[in-house]
Amino acid sequence: MSKVILGIDGGGTKTHACLVDLEGNILATAANGGANWERIGVAAVQKSLDEIIDAVCAEASVSRSDIVDSTCALAGVDWEEDKKLLAPVISALALDGKCQLINDSFAALFAGIPSGIGCVSIAGTGGKSAGRSTSGSVQTMGMELGEGGGAGQLVDTALDLIARAHHGTKEKTALYKELPAAVGFDDPVEFFTAVARGRVSLDETLAPLIFSLADQGDAGAIEVVTKVAQQHANDIQGVVQQLNFEGSTIELIRAGGLHTAANRVFDEVFEKWIKATLPNMHMQVLDVSPVFGAVMHAAHRYFGSVSQDFITNLTSAAKKVEI
């Protein structure tokens, strides 16, 4: 019988799975739609996970009984009651209890730091800041509860700013015209009316427009990007204050579209705020899929102590794989 380790990373819009052997060699990967129960419901998460496990097992020519340990790192797992809500889903995966459910931010952490000791700032469709030390782990609670919200927050902040510009309390910059135009409105009054009456909604797909305007020097867009970058930096400062990190350097993984877009304004503000209060923090942008961190997390559970050979095999192969 083959022995394999499974990692699953499920976000708001896509889910990735990866199977490796006990030496850390990648056997198969798979992808499908989102697995955030807050967005698609518990039943849809069950279907998504079942489908992706079937797909990755078929690709590797193994069965679920060959899986010796696994981690499901899912967006929306923010509270203990979320784990209880999804416990029947995990049980129904027929992995014989060899599966742990965690928030997807920790997959990104383990993907960038194989030991899982450090901090992670997620700024993608949504946002999450988390950290893990030898004494425990913490994570932020949600955008409605003081957390940086990634592209969603960026768009919400931009809407708030152009509304204030319409009221006359902020300057009308290019953002004031470009944001409504991006969703088909030339008349600001018609745009705001449609937003107020629920005929149009703005989503995270508008984030690249805001980043582009900031890069072009638009004062309104720069103000929006600055506010969101500062929020994400502040969240990391709060995480560090709650954890007892040993040693002189704290590792920070930056992941998600806002961190990987190489936007000058966002990067400069985020890094400046981090270095001002946490000068011993070493930052790096995640350059592999977080699903490999879910695999690493499961490997820690299975082996207790993961060998350097396993880490080297997995991390080197992960850089060559696109899912």
Rank of each mutant, 00 (worst) to 15 (best):
M1F: 10
M1D: 12
V4T: 15
V4R: 05
I5E: 11
L6T: 13
G10F: 00
G10M: 04
G10R: 04
G11V: 05
K14Q: 11
T15G: 09
C18I: 06
C18E: 07
L19M: 11
V20L: 10
V20P: 01
N25P: 03
A31P: 00
A31C: 10
G34N: 05
V42S: 06
V42T: 13
A43L: 11
A44L: 03
A44T: 02
D50R: 14
D50K: 15
E51K: 12
D54S: 13
D54Y: 09
A55Q: 14
V56L: 05
V56K: 01
S61V: 13
D66W: 09
D69Q: 15
T71P: 02
V77D: 05
L86W: 05
L86S: 08
P88G: 05
V89A: 11
I90Y: 09
S91A: 14
L93F: 03
C99A: 15
D104V: 05
D104L: 05
A108H: 02
L109S: 04
F110D: 03
F110R: 05
A111H: 10
T125E: 04
G131D: 07
R132V: 06
S133H: 10
T134N: 13
V138T: 09
G142H: 08
M143P: 00
G146M: 07
G150D: 07
G150E: 06
G152R: 08
G152V: 03
Q153P: 00
D156V: 06
A158E: 04
A158V: 05
L159I: 12
D160F: 07
A163D: 04
A163W: 12
R164L: 13
A165F: 04
T169Y: 10
E171D: 11
T173E: 10
A174K: 15
Y176I: 10
E178N: 06
L179R: 05
A182D: 08
F185M: 00
F192L: 09
F192N: 01
T193Y: 10
V195T: 07
G198V: 11
V200G: 01
S201Q: 14
L202R: 06
D203W: 03
T205G: 04
T205R: 14
A207T: 06
I210Q: 03
F211T: 02
F211Q: 08
F211E: 06
L213G: 02
A214F: 01
A214I: 07
D215E: 15
G217T: 12
D218W: 09
E223T: 13
V225W: 00
T226H: 06
K227H: 08
A229P: 00
Q230I: 03
D235K: 00
I236F: 08
L243R: 05
N244G: 11
E246L: 14
E251G: 09
L252H: 01
I253C: 08
R254P: 00
H259M: 15
R264W: 02
V265G: 00
D267N: 14
D267T: 15
A276C: 04
P279R: 13
N280W: 01
M283C: 14
V291K: 06
V295Q: 13
V295M: 12
A299T: 14
A299K: 10
H300C: 01
R301V: 08
R301C: 07
R301Q: 13
V306K: 09
Q308T: 12
I311D: 11
T315C: 14
A318S: 14
A318L: 04
A318G: 00
K319W: 06
K320Y: 05
E322G: 01
I323V: 15
